[in-house]
Design a binder for these strands. Structure first.
Length: 1020
RNA sequence: GCCGCGGUGGCGGAAUUGGUAGACGCACAGGACUCAAAAUCCUGCGAUCGCAAGGUCAUGAGAGUUCGAUUCUCUCCCGCGGCACCA
């Protein structure tokens, strides 16, 4: 009797059995069962452990979990010792807010939410190893989070070895040691990896919490979406910036999705340049000469000659002193401006980009290159937090400075590059076959008001191609006139180059098609041969100058000159050109031919006026949260000893069980009110002291959870070295893009730090995750984001209730490419339902007849002879499904299974062998139905520990194939031919075809191309 | 503005190193079975011309390379994501 496919009947049955038998439990690395091998290869698959919110599972969760479930199931079937763990990232705001609203304790709410999540996850049949379940709010877990915080507290970053080291290893300079205990302590405090400092932080007034930079992207709170304010507050900070370089460099050693990689690199924002010291001149109220200098950071030291003023951010520290000492004469204006800037929120600063500022009266700076006195300004377009908080402004070469200078009437001076043209050979020859030396100059147009301007001496110019984005036709005409006069050359050619369209137009007008190719070649030459990163777009947006002349020297004005010309020509210096005359050409000529930036840095270093500097956008990690539901920071403040670490043996510092835990407006943690908890004795001097009352951000617990999974029940260590050596690094980690600059960055940093200290064995490598992939969103029906307010949220419980786990899982895999957003489609899931029903129908009737597993040598031939034989398709499917799982192309893997099922459904009789293979391929995707049918086939052990099928590579190709015959690229005929057909035979067959003969129409083929196994292409 | 990704039927999406564009699924239409419905099965399904055989046009637009381009190159347009007064 046929029974209908009823997921409800089978799914919970198998879920219970699998759990009871523990088939998904990872084997310990060191406890070996008699049946397993000593060197069983491991596979560590990881998903981001969920935050157990009150809302329960979202349909987005299973997309990630099913994907990694499929991969790990395949690995298990391939004989790997698989670790696919699960746990809870349970500290944090949403639970706390939920608890406040519903008047329950966060711990209680968490427990309830976890129970609900557990039920939901189990109903989906994931192969998680529940015996390793962890929970960040469990004191046995956060004990180690606190322990690690103390590692940060008690370590410093050794710049020489580029590694974090224990603070005990630091060598305190004798000078400081002589100053006594306090000085030593202060010295050490400054070096700590975790340090408390007063800083301007992002404060969310609605969450009443300080946020890390990463959590306040775009000036908006990551949690509630509200506007973020600036607040001055003493905060625990973690020195992630020390690792900025390594966090970029080591990306080369791992396999991350490209966009994850670039996003991290962007976020860290490395830029290389120089710091330049400007001497400041001025007098204080007592007419005493000021002795001060302002250091700035610039990525364009080569434009130093063009620096015509200096700008300080409103928060610049020296300003306070100068205002106090009466150095600044217009103190009132300056103070007013600073107040105004301080009040502005980040958003206001972003929205209103008009450049405001105040000149500092009574102060000037000296340009170290020109020796010129330049004004000093305060303006809020300079950010306090980046670089030194001050800049040198080069209005001729920086848009922002340009805008500011124009508005406030500040002098603008260009840096001009003289160019030697004899360094490059032309790719083409002139009419007399003499190799012509030529040069291509691409000059960025830096403002709308200025036009590219050429200065030339009396040279014998032959050809010019000149143009400018903003240059009008009249400008070109004027330039032609000028060049005629100057050179006496009567027929210079000018083209306004804006891209190939313009080139084509120009030369089409002159009926000179040859030239088009030449010009196009020019661009290729520029791109491929000279400088790769001059993109086509860039080329089009720049003015181009093309000059063919030997030993010519000319000057080109405009920003970007050096960048673009240097690598091309190799011989450029920097000089400051005023009114067309190179004032400082002596300096220029004294420089060797090398990169202008480097030359300038070398000069600065020689003159002790600056040095090579690298700057990062990344800031230190703000680690304090003024909320209750987080790990207490295990620090005690003592009036005598300062911040003191809680003794290791006293960990964990448990969260006190309290009645009231609402946040406060004062910026203090609710814990501060619990005096019985706050008052403690100083661990060092035993005097009365106070606990730190801030808690950690929820990124803390998630920064190392993957390590705990390796050895989750260890009471002596966060994980044993042995287990870490075996399991780490994670082989495959999937998570959301939204964590790229948060959790992913933090945890990489955290891991590197522990690795530096050696608490993670060297052998594990410096990166925690070998492969990082990212799933995309599941959108609501119609392609909009799912949200409660739109009422388009799909609840996984409902889907499981209606369709069962297997259909749900396959649907989510089939919905589209794993890394592309896809809308939920209520009809689409019906198709998957039909597929599994079909699978059920195909295999149930045959099974009773063949119980006991007989191997059938020959697979039954399909009903329809024109179908390829099933054996080939079977082998192709084994390959396809296996390969697709490796590359996470689940949608096409499911499609391949459907194709095979469709073919099998046309067979009159099914063989057990074929059924077994099909079910094994299906098992990772739909574990329940595969297991049910598998056991009906007579197996007693689970299909999920059965061996993954292998394919016969000889049987991937069918006996015959359809040979396509093209004439001039168009398909004219298709012939069914034997797979081992030779080129000669194929060509002959093609030419013999009547349709082809008709298409040839008596003409003789010029060329015949044969592509093996595919086509014959005839050109006439 | 900068960086990254993408643009293919009514829809989600396939297409190996350039080699039959539209696999698989959905929706839709017609048919078989049925008293009927559901389920299932069969057929069709990019546009256009044609009774048909077959032809022509089609992968955001325009060009280029090629016997042959969704794929490679160039330009332009549009969408998404990230960063953004980062010097």
């Amino acid at each position: 009797m046929k029974t209908a496919y009823d997921p409800k009947k089978i799914e919970s049955k198998w879920q219970k059995k699998w759990e009871k038998e523990g088939i998904y439990q990872a084997e310990e690395s060191y406890v070996l069962r008699p049946t397993s091998y000593v060197k069983k290869k491991k596979f560590y698959g990881l998903i981001e452990f969920p935050y157990p919110s009150g809302e329960g599972l979202h349909v987005g969760h299973p997309r990630s979990y099913t994907a990694i479930d499929i991969v790990t199931r395949k690995k298990r079937m391939e004989g790997r010792n698989v670790l696919y763990p699960i746990g809870w990232d349970a500290f944090g705001l949403p639970t706390e807010n939920f608890a406040i609203k519903n008047k329950v304790k966060p711990a209680v709410a968490t427990k309830k939410n976890i129970a609900n999540f557990t039920r939901q996850l189990k109903s989906l049949g994931f192969g998680f190893d529940w015996s390793r379940e962890i929970n960040t709010t469990d004191p046995a877990y956060y004990k180690w989070t606190q322990w690690m915080f103390l590692k940060f507290f008690n370590s410093y970053y050794d710049e020489k070895t580029k590694r974090a080291r224990p603070l005990s290893e630091i060598k305190v300079p004798p000078k400081i040691r002589l100053q006594g205990k306090k000085a030593i302590a202060a010295y050490l405090d400054e070096k700590r990896m975790a340090y408390k400092a007063s800083a301007t932080i992002n404060w969310c007034p609605s969450c009443k919490i300080g946020l890390a930079n990463e959590e306040a992207q775009g000036g908006v709170c990551e949690r509630c979406g509200g506007k973020v304010e600036k607040r001055e507050k003493a905060q625990w900070m973690i020195r992630i910036t020390a690792y900025a370089d390594r966090l970029i460099e080591d990306l080369d050693t791992v396999d991350y999705l490209d966009r994850i990689r670039t996003q991290q690199i962007n976020w860290i924002g490395k830029s290389e340049g120089a710091s330049v010291d400007f001497d400041i001149e001025g007098q204080d109220a007592d007419k005493k000469n000021l002795e001060a200098n302002v250091s700035v950071f610039t990525t364009r030291p080569d434009t130093l000659f063009g620096a015509t003023y200096l700008v300080l951010s409103p928060e610049y520290p020296l300003l306070d002193r100068w205002l106090q000492d009466g150095v600044i004469k217009n103190a009132r204006n300056v103070q007013e401006y600073r107040e105004g800037a301080r009040k502005k929120s980040d958003i206001e600063r972003q929205e209103n980009k008009e450049k405001t500022g105040v000149a500092l009266d009574g102060i000037s700076a000296l340009n170290p290159a020109t020796g010129e006195q330049i004004p000093v300004w305060v303006a809020d377009y300079v950010l306090a937090g980046y670089g030194t908080g001050a800049i040198m402004a080069v209005p001729a070469h920086d848009e922002r400075d340009w805008e500011f200078a124009k508005k406030h009437g500040i002098k603008i001076k260009q840096v001009v590059a003289p160019v030697y043209v004899d360094e490059i050979n032309s790719p083409r020859e002139n009419k007399r076959n003499v190799p012509r030396r030529s040069v291509v100059c691409v000059v960025k147009h830096w403002s709308k008001d200025e036009i590219l301007c050429l200065k030339w001496k009396k040279y014998d110019w032959q050809t010019f191609v000149i143009g400018g984005v903003e240059a009008g036709e009249d400008m070109v005409a004027a330039a032609i006139r000028e060049i005629r006069e100057e050179t006496g050359y009567q027929h210079p050619k000018f083209v306004r180059i804006l891209g190939s369209e313009y080139i084509a137009k120009y030369f089409a007008a002159h009926k000179d098609e040859n030239r088009i190719a030449q010009i196009t070649g020019l661009y290729f030459e520029l791109k491929d041969g000279v400088r790769e990163d001059v993109s086509a777009t860039e080329t089009a947006q720049h003015d181009a100058v093309w000059v063919t002349r030997e030993n010519a020297r000319f000057f080109v004005r405009g920003a970007g000159v050096h960048e673009l010309l240097e690598p091309l020509l190799g011989g450029v210096g920097s000089a400051f050109l005023d009114e067309g005359v190179a004032i400082n050409s002596d300096f220029l000529n004294s420089l060797p031919t090398a990169d202008a930036k480097e030359k300038m840095i070398a000069w600065l270093e020689k003159e002790k006026k600056g040095k090579h500097t690298v700057n990062f956008r990344l800031r230190d990690w703000v680690f304090s949260r003024q909320r209750y539901w987080g790990e207490p920071i295990p620090i005690i403040f003592c009036d005598e000893c300062g911040p003191v670490a809680v003794a290791e043996k006293s960990l964990p510092v448990k969260l006190p069980d309290v009645r009231r835990y609402e946040p406060t407006d004062t910026g203090e943690s609710p814990l501060a009110k619990i005096s019985t908890w706050v008052k403690v004795k100083c661990p060092t001097c035993k005097r009365s002291a106070k606990r730190e009352t801030d808690t950690m951000p929820n990124w803390a617990g998630s920064s190392w959870y993957f390590l705990r999974y390796c050895d989750p029940h260890n009471r002596k260590e966060f994980a044993s070295a042995k287990s870490l050596k075996y399991w780490m690094p994670v082989d495959l980690y999937d998570g959301g893009m939204e964590h790229t600059t948060l959790h992913l960055l933090y945890s990489r940093f955290w891991y590197k730090f522990l690795w530096d200290l050696g608490v993670i064995p060297e052998k594990c490598g410096s990166e925690p995750y070998k492969v990082r992939r990212s799933h995309a969103l599941i959108l609501g029906e119609g392609g909009v984001k799912m949200s409660k307010s739109k009422g388009n949220v799909v609840n996984p419980d409902d889907v499981v209730e209606k369709y069962g786990a297997d259909i749900f899982r396959i649907y989510e895999m089939f919905i589209g490419p794993f890394d592309a957003d896809a809308p939920w489609d209520t009809h689409g899931i019906e198709g998957v339902k039909r597929f599994l029903e079909k699978v059920w129908r195909i295999f149930t009737p045959v099974i009773p007849a063949q119980a006991g597993i007989q191997k059938h040598k020959h697979l039954d031939s399909p009903v329809k002879p024109e179908n390829d034989n099933v054996e080939t398709l079977l082998n192709q499917t084994i390959k396809k499904v296996g390969d697709d799982i490796e590359t996470l192309d689940f949608n096409t893997a499911v499609s391949a299974l459907m194709i095979l099922a469709n073919a099998l459904s046309e067979c009159k009789v099914q063989s057990a062998e074929c059924a077994e293979i099909f079910l094994k391929l299906l098992a990772p995707f739909a574990p329940h139905i595969a297991e049910e049918l598998w056991q009906k086939l007579g197996h007693e052990t689970s299909i999920h520990v059965a061996e993954w099928p292998s394919y016969d590579s000889k049987k991937l190709v069918a006996d015959t194939f359809e040979l396509v015959v093209q004439v001039n690229g168009k398909v004219r005929d298709r012939l069914t031919v034997s797979s081992d057909i030779s080129e000669k035979e194929a060509t002959a067959a093609a030419l013999a075809s009547p349709k082809i003969r008709a298409a040839l129409d008596g003409k003789k083929p010029k060329k015949v191309i044969y592509v093996k196994g595919r086509l014959v292409s005839i050109a006439i």
